Amino acid sequence: MSAVEIDVAVHRQLGELVAGMRGLQDSIRRIEEGAQRAEDKTATSHANVHLRMEQLADRVGELEASVLAIGTDVAEMKPVTDDVRRWKLMGIGALGVTGIAAMVLGVSFAEAIRRIVFVVIGKG
């Protein structure tokens, strides 16, 4: 092999090495870009998760406040409800007593009218 042939072979091999190195560099660059995009997506996803968690915490806080307010309202209503129940029971009792009294009065009134009719007719 002559010096020119060796020189051509060396240049060809060096060209192949350079082309291979450039290919490796391109592959490494694409891998780095893909990793960067994955990191960006991960960061965005984590930000969204944290935002949702904060919103959820706010909603739970509002729910706790609402439950506390409802509990306070129910505690305030309980004495009133108990009074209304007591009044209802007293009203039912009063209606019963009034009904019995009206029945007795009606029977007495009917008996009085019957006696008056017998006196007027002359049977009594």
Results as ranks from 00 to 15, higher is better:
Q13C: 02
A65I: 05
I100Y: 04
G91E: 13
Q36N: 10
L51A: 14
E16R: 08
I113V: 14
M77T: 11
I100V: 13
S66P: 01
G34D: 09
K78T: 11
L56Y: 06
V84D: 00
G91V: 06
V67M: 07
R85N: 14
D7S: 14
L89T: 12
D26P: 01
V10Q: 07
E33R: 04
L68W: 11
K78W: 05
L56T: 06
S27Y: 10
E33S: 08
G106F: 05
G15K: 04
F109G: 11
E76Y: 07
I116C: 13
F109H: 06
L105P: 03
G20R: 14
L89H: 13
R37Y: 09
E16A: 11
R85D: 06
L95Y: 07
F109P: 00
R12S: 01
G93N: 12
I6G: 00
A69M: 10
S108Y: 13
R86P: 01
L14Q: 06
A57K: 11
Q36E: 15
S108E: 13
A19H: 04
I31Q: 09
H46P: 02
E33F: 01
A38D: 01
I31W: 06
G106R: 07
A69C: 06
S45G: 10
R29K: 07
G61D: 03
S45F: 10
G96N: 05
G106V: 00
E39W: 03
Q55P: 00
I116T: 12
L105E: 10
L56V: 04
R85S: 09
K78C: 04
A101M: 06
L63I: 04
H50Y: 01
V8W: 00
R85E: 10
M53N: 04
R114P: 04
T98N: 02
V49Q: 03
L17K: 08
H46D: 11
R37F: 04
L63M: 05
G20D: 15
E62K: 08
G96L: 09
T81W: 08
